[in-house]
């Protein structure tokens, strides 16, 4: 999807998982940017039809990049800074009762 440009300032990288897959991204990225940089196009399914959606505006307006982060759903990935060890998951339609209970 997205790749780093040739000339960037060097910086530390962070490890995280997306739906269980191990990934890394640059410290300072938002969750949505980290997913794009790892080739993830879709990060949620809509509650109405279940269609796949991915980040659209990257500035907190569209709510398309909603993901589950460390068990908490409905987080706007483009506004949350990535942290080491984050467990990020696809937000599947309406959330399930077990998740909600957390």
């Amino acid at each position: 999807m997205f790749r780093p440009i040739a000339e960037t300032r060097p910086g530390p990288s962070l490890g995280f998982t997306f739906d269980g897959r191990a990934m890394t991204a640059r410290a300072g990225d938002t969750v949505a940017a980290a997913l794009l940089a790892n080739g993830v196009a879709a990060c949620r399914q809509t509650p109405v039809s279940g269609a796949a959606r991915g980040p659209y505006c990257m500035m907190g307006v569209c709510f398309e990049c909603l993901v589950v982060i460390d068990g908490i759903g409905n987080r706007q990935g483009c506004l949350v800074p990535l942290r080491e060890g984050m467990r990020i998951e696809t937000q599947a339609g309406r959330r399930q009762p077990d998740e909600v209970r957390s």
């Binding site: 908490i72 759903g73 409905n74 959330r95 009762p97 998740e99 909600v100 209970r101 957390s102």
Partner: peptide, 8 residues
């Protein structure tokens, strides 16, 4: 309704 606690 504890189920509602994380509801936006």
């Amino acid at each position: 309704f504890p189920i509602m606690r994380a509801a936006p």
